[in-house]
Design a protein around this nucleic acid. Structure first.
Lengths: 355, 355
DNA sequence: GTGAAAGCGCTAACAG
DNA sequence: CTGTTAGCGCTTTCAC
């Protein structure tokens, strides 16, 4: 019925060489005469041969399986653009480098979340794990993963993760600083900040940057109202509504990601607040969400796809042995403030009226 | 350094049986005494043994690798919530059933898109492919995939795909009909429709449903302005802006998905049109986008996560041999109109003014 | 019920 | 430069 798929031996027979030679050609090994290489390649093409990844892996070539670990909930809404962008970037790089990628969403609230990650790694024989926050800062987890012979690349580690594995991300503190500067220049003086889940250190750094900008301007960083969200649209919407109901509300609401900013925007609409007339709102990430809402969100661009790709490359390097040892390196990618209509000039009238 | 991972032989030795018996226990085979089974299971737990999927696959157990094929562009924006939802649903089911899932975005405009799909299947030794539109309606592709011994499940096949493979989806024609009825009841009489890419037959059926509703109401279905988008926010925005600039614009704009509806909404805001005061806009899918925008989008709910899961189950059944032969079955899942603020009562004043 | 033996397709020493 | 020889860890006949 279904024709048997050609094996490496078929190719060897067809091109009149030994199996080993074919393997060498296939894996770019040295010591193969050009004419032999061509002959083998011709057979490969003629027979439409593909290496069997399972056999290769079993024989010692490694599984070439990587996993992207995302903190979210399998039961919750489909993952945000943030996760999609990382995944797409990683997927693209995997395709180019001949890796397979598994994506695993781990509920961050589950007590056995570490075990879930380790289980995935073991079961799938992963050779590398890409950890996003807050896993990226779980030094214990990273240690255990590595102990079991698997490489780690972190996305946006904030603190301990930075010194426990190779990582990639932007300068989050500077990102927070820059967006704050943007708002300060627009005349804003009363700020609120919606942060992310606990343990997401890089998001905390965004707040640090905001505070530094305020301090620089002679304002009191302690005056910033800080509330904790969980990066979802809903949390942004709920928390913002609560903020708006308080006396002396902020004129600038800085959110730790775009989804929460979109939620805040929605809450503002619901309350009849004009954005940016009455209130400016900013996001973080520059995902498509920021252009989908009205008015479009001012935000900080993060090169998420590049980050996903870089993480794969980090693991590929480690696997290839190009770099060894515990000299973990953090790659800083550029960020940029994207000025859009949701952040506008602070209205002195409104500011006074509610003061 | 890294402890060697236990193999099936370690388990066999530990529990004092032959390797074959362990295999039987692991795969739920018959002919194992309960006490032996328990002993083996105890060893498995004690040694923290995991089967090596690569070895299993090589030995004939099958790769247990499935792939989700999505028509989009690797270079384009991160995939929409539509893709994420399908993926999440499929991923969850794969996890439960012990499959691995690869997601592959294939640029639909590339001339070798069929080859790309086949290449993925061959290279990864996939046992099943989940095809989304327009691949779901490519009977030639489906035929070729199956010829190579791989199973197929289609998501929302519209025409030929329906009779070429097992599929799952909603009744798209009815979905279009229902959302049209909703708008008709709100008093709308002048409709426009933003359709999706060519070949996406299930989206075409949504238009068929819209027309049926109009006909039923004694209106001329040919009077509907139909423009073709590509399911992206941007295309919705551009096409809507063009529609608004024409004389006698519609009072109800029905879009083939949420992203395009969000784009249309953005274009309406840009032109200063009030939604739903001047114009009602509806989406399709009920992805999170529909709640993120303002006003929230009236739309047709599609159980995307369930669809992704069902597709995996279809393949699992075929693989298990529970169902055989070419009696392809299409599973219809329920849809529902979700009434939200973007669809409101038609304004007779505006309608007259622009007539 | 259980076990022994034979590969699955490939890579990796080690010889030549 | 190329070939020979062992396995990798598992499933699967086929005996017992």
């Amino acid at each position: 019925m279904t024709a048997r798929k050609p094996t490496i031996d078929d190719v060897a027979r067809d091109s009149g060489v030994a199996r080993t030679t074919v393997s060498r050609v296939l894996n770019g090994g040295p010591n193969v005469r050009p004419e032999v290489r061509d002959r083998v390649l011709a057979s490969v093409a003629a027979l439409n041969y593909r290496v069997n990844p399972q056999a290769r892996s079993l024989a010692g070539g490694g599984s070439r399986m990587l996993a992207l670990v995302l903190a979210s909930d399998l039961e919750a809404e489909p993952n945000s653009f943030y996760a999609s962008a990382l995944e797409l970037g990683a997927l693209r790089e995997c395709l180019a480098l001949g890796f397979q990628l598994m994506t695993r969403h781990v509920p961050q609230q589950s007590p056995d979340r570490r075990e879930q990650v380790l289980e995935l790694m073991t079961t799938q024989r992963c050779q590398g794990l890409i950890l996003t926050p807050p896993f990226a800062d779980d030094a214990t987890l990273i240690e255990e993963i590595r102990r079991q012979g698997c490489h780690v690349a972190t996305i946006s580690p904030g603190g301990p993760g930075r010194s426990a594995a190779d990582g990639v991300g932007i300068d989050d503190e500077a990102g927070g600083y820059d967006i704050a500067r943007h708002l300060l220049e627009l005349g804003h003086r009363r700020f609120a900040f919606i942060s992310g889940i606990e343990g997401h250190l890089s998001a905390e750094q965004r707040l640090d940057g905001l505070k530094r900008a305020l301090r620089e301007r002679g304002l009191d960083p302690a005056a910033v109202t800080v509330v904790r969200g969980d990066f979802t649209f809903r949390s942004g919407s709920v928390l913002a509504a609560r903020l708006f109901a308080q006396p002396n509300p902020p004129t600038a609401l800085v959110c730790a990601n775009d989804d929460m900013a979109a939620g805040a925007l929605s809450a503002a609409h619901g309350r009849g607040l004009d954005v940016p007339g009455h209130l400016s709102i900013t996001g973080f990430d520059d995902t498509p969400v920021s252009e989908i809402v009205w008015p479009p969100l001012a935000t900080v661009h993060q090169p998420l796809k590049d980050m996903g790709g870089a993480a794969v490359r980090i693991i590929a390097e480690r696997l290839a042995g190009t770099r060894r040892g515990a000299d973990w390196r953090f790659t800083v990618l550029p960020h940029a403030v994207v000025a859009r209509a949701s952040a506008g000039r602070a209205a002195p009238i409104f500011a006074t009226a509610s003061a």
